[in-house]
Write a protein that binds this DNA or RNA. Sequence first.
DNA 1: AGCACGCCGACT
DNA 2: GTCGGCGTGCTC
Length: 729
Amino acid sequence: MTEVIRVAVAGPFTDALDYRLPVTGPAPVIGARVRVPLGRRNIVGMVTSRPEASDLADDRLRAVTEVLDSAPLLDPATIELIEWAARYYHHPVGEAYLTALPARLRRGQSATPSVETGWRITESGEAAQIDSRSRRAPRQAMLLEALQQSKTLTAVQLAGFSGDARAALKRLVEQGLAETVTAPDYGLLQGLSNEPGAVLNAEQQSSAAAIQPGAGHQAILVDGVTGSGKTEVYLDAIERTLALGRQTLVVVPEIGLTPQLVSRFQQRLAGRIAILHSGLADGERLNAWLAARAGEADVVIGTRSAVFAPLKHPGLIVIDEEHDPSLKQQEGFRYSARDLAVLRGYRLDIPVVLGSATPSLESLANATTGRYQCYPLRQRAGDARPPSLQLLDMRGEPTRDGLSQPLLDRVRGHLDAGGQALLFLNRRGFAPTLICHECGWLAECDRCDARYTYHRGRRRLHCHHCDRERPIPHHCPSCGSVDLRALGLGTERIEAALTDAFPDTPPVRIDRDSTRRRGSFEQAMRQARDGETRLILGTQMLAKGHHLPAVTLVAIIDADQGLFGADFRAPERLAQQIVQVAGRAGRADRPGEVVIQTHHPEHPLLQQLLHGGYSAFARTALAEREAAGLPPARAMALIRAEATARDAPNAFLQAAMQQTPGDAAIERLGPYPAPMERRAGRHRAQLMLLADSRNSLQTFLSRWLPGLSRIPEARQVRWSVDVDPVEAL
DNA sequence: AGCACGCCGACT
DNA sequence: GTCGGCGTGCTC
């Protein structure tokens, strides 16, 4: 009987592949990486199990060529999480493992952290006389003295000495007075703990007290309005977790992981902090990951994929801004870091804290059923009053570049009163459309069912869906007229209009275009925070997390685009955006004012928000989802298909629909064209599945999906599954 | 996903 | 006569 190991490798394999043990040397352990032959390649894989036997005939098994790790890289709990995620999201298991590993480990590089060289004094160094060498070798004398005092020197300390200290130390080492020592350097931030925790108010206290590190699993939703001090509650719980000698994993949206957040954690906590995000160099990322795994990091702050980071002593998981769509991966392995974090906390029997000022309807539903404990934080720090919301009825109102006179008057008023105004428009560029005034021709992308956005600064037309760019035509290609006009609003246009209207108060624009340069986002936010700029304008980049205490007026320039979105989540997104942006105002002693320009002031969503705030909106929205049989009331999955050939996606999905198991409890919709039917030259269609429970949906998918790749039409399309989609588009 | 094989068009 | 286009199929 051949001894078999199962190895997860990258590729379209639902399950891991079977291999024989390496010809020589010890057998690899579960959780270790190996190099295995696949076709004519030799690739890195992860040992996932040690089955009794293989389903495959002996002569089809190939042998592991190299064992890359002598000890497991991943512990059993992390392996189980990855395996569970691959099954739940119906994604090839090898890719799930790859997602969990830093790039260097994916490539088979060694799982060792950077090393720092230091120097230590020897016994003879202790005894050596300093005076005797101070004339001939003053630098050596100086270093010897330093070593006699502090016993060790690090490379960082060495940089503080003048001249070639390294060469002098080398001489000391040669004389046997010092020796080099190496230590792993995980690149961690040392918590300074030089800021006492803020005194918690009653609400914060009760939510913090509910979090009980060390007392088993619990899921706690901290539903805290902006400025209510959610972070203080996290920090309090993290401190107590630290005191138990356990680690905390903090998962944040990509944009939420800012230097300010990190520095706040560092100032406040005593432990060592590892940062895990996509902007890190491969080496830094590996170091941070290894530090989490080794238990060297007490707190691990990371974006989505950090949910898979192995932890030696897990004690607490925090998910900040749990409503944020970026916590769900939008391509390939479409996992939800939030949902996996909750599962992970359950499996590890540790608390999970979810925080948001605008909780997802999913989490609110879980709070209603009692799966999550819910702690509202309604009180704002320093007794700042909540901002007052007002609608500006735009019907019949003359506008100049989208800004109504009442809005301009408000802005003027706040500026005159020494306040700051923040204007929000979730559309970058100058205008979303370029139109010929003579014949009505529209500048349309030839690869997408979309119009080009006119970017005046870059002097280009840019398709935001496929990234295609082209120069601005001088005349209409249809009728030859030179009267081409920008139609609609973008941030660039608002910027120009503001510059005109308030020539003494130049605005700062914050969107993806204006912050392309590294550090420019931070710089713009700093300018805004310091009051250097008093007119701030931008897209949803503004809505995320940054404190702008001097802002007294927030204006939503166009609420209408979100009111009638195709996606059933569009209202939820709009409400979250409005509330998040509104949260920037009225944080200090001055009460904030929020105005929303709309042509639909009677719209129930806006009325709900106005009179009952986000929680009233959410209650209504939840009831509507319930009535419509949509998530979170029911479980959803999408099958997407795309191809360059117009009819291929539909043909495939049609065939897939035919093969659907006869389960009456599963509602099947489609195939129907995706809302933007053609994108980047590909035609897109989809199927929607709805079930009363995640379980029955899973059973259905598990029976159905494996057969789909055998459908002949499948070869003409790229298709994928999205379980719990956040964009049902 | 990668990497073969395989069967048809424009080149030394 | 070959070089190479991308359709088709397989990898434990």
